[in-house]
């Protein structure tokens, strides 16, 4: 039997006009991105004969659409998921739910899957927009699917984290603030720490003690950037956006750390498996490392969320 919470959430979500507004805004912004990038290259709209230039345009389009898609996901997930548990609590429907035979984990899973199913709808609907780049020849179909997959993975992890955080709040407004604060922290804390430490190191005149590169890895943008670093024709891009900049920072950070993600123990065995060997992307890739770190964080948060949903409880929540 389908998770009852999932079924009800989908039914309620799709019954309101809000879902279609979000879908419309999501697709409109992606289409606008394609239009702006296309215009930005000075295209006349005629068929390009310079294949190299057309390929670069395709790659730029892919990079920008991917980045805007990620940015929209990072913006919409907190808004769509923050009320998951707090909303039940605020409209006083949580107690009747808690005295049913549903387990706390089922309630949380239902909420997460419901939010995820809507995100899947958003991302699948945006696939044709992304594939404009394929038509121009900048990417392969696999690249497009890979980009979509990694954005979906980041979205899933963020959904679990935000839904779990929602169990801590009594009001949707509080939960929404917490969700956006947490997402902002997730995006900014690593780079802020890394660059602050680098400036501090630099001011001491000490070039050897660089901050650990792993600080840059536990970051949704870095994960997507590294996973879509590209191969084949996808390498031929010089159009810059945040994803490209992020990739450059990852490479630079590792080079400062003896090609290791961890500066603290660059010579031991555990450090070695996280290195780039002979300049090739071997060992443990940044996106996998970041995904594991976010997965652990999501697991910890969901553990506390389930605990908080468990009844009988010591205090009324």
């Amino acid at each position: 039997m389908i998770n009852p919470v999932l079924g009800r959430e989908i039914r309620e979500r799709m019954r309101t006009g809000r879902a279609f507004v979000v879908l419309g805004v999501f697709l409109s912004l992606l289409i606008l991105t394609v239009y702006l990038v296309y215009q930005g290259t000075g295209s006349t709209g005629e068929i390009q004969v310079d294949l190299a230039r057309q390929t670069r345009l395709g790659r730029d389009l892919y990079e920008w659409v991917l980045f805007v898609m990620l940015a929209l996901v990072l913006f919409f997930v907190p808004g769509l998921t923050a009320g998951a548990i707090a909303g039940e609590r605020e409209r006083q429907t949580l107690l009747p739910l808690q005295v049913t035979l549903l387990r706390p984990s089922s309630i949380l899973v239902g909420k997460v899957l419901a939010a995820m199913s809507f995100l899947v709808l958003l991302l699948v609907a945006s696939l044709p927009v992304m594939m404009v780049a394929y038509l121009l020849g900048g990417i392969r179909v696999l690249d497009g699917l890979k980009g979509l997959g990694i954005v979906l993975l980041v979205a899933a992890l963020l959904t679990v984290m935000v839904a779990s955080l929602s169990s801590l709040a009594k009001r949707v407004q509080t939960a929404t603030l917490m969700a956006y604060g947490f997402t902002a922290l997730l995006i900014l804390i690593g780079p802020l720490l890394y660059f602050t430490m680098r400036v501090a190191d630099g001011s001491k005149g000490n070039d050897l003690e660089n901050p650990p590169a792993v600080l840059l890895v536990i970051n949704p943008i870095a994960i997507v950037a590294d996973a879509t670093a590209g191969s084949g024709s996808a390498r031929q891009s010089d159009g810059g956006n945040v994803l490209r900049w992020s990739r450059e920072q990852l490479v630079e950070a590792k080079s400062y750390n003896g090609e290791s993600w961890f500066a603290w123990f660059p010579d031991d065995d555990s450090g070695a498996q996280f290195r780039v060997i002979n300049g090739r992307r071997e060992g443990f890739p940044a996106w996998a490392l970041g995904t594991i770190a976010l997965s652990l964080l999501a697991a910890v948060l969901s553990y506390f969320a389930v605990r908080r949903l468990r009844t009988p409880a010591e205090v009324e929540r």
Partner: peptide
Amino acid sequence: RRRMGYMPDNLGVYDN
């Protein structure tokens, strides 16, 4: 819970 039905003092229902 299998043998008990509970109606809390707050009237919370799913409006949609």
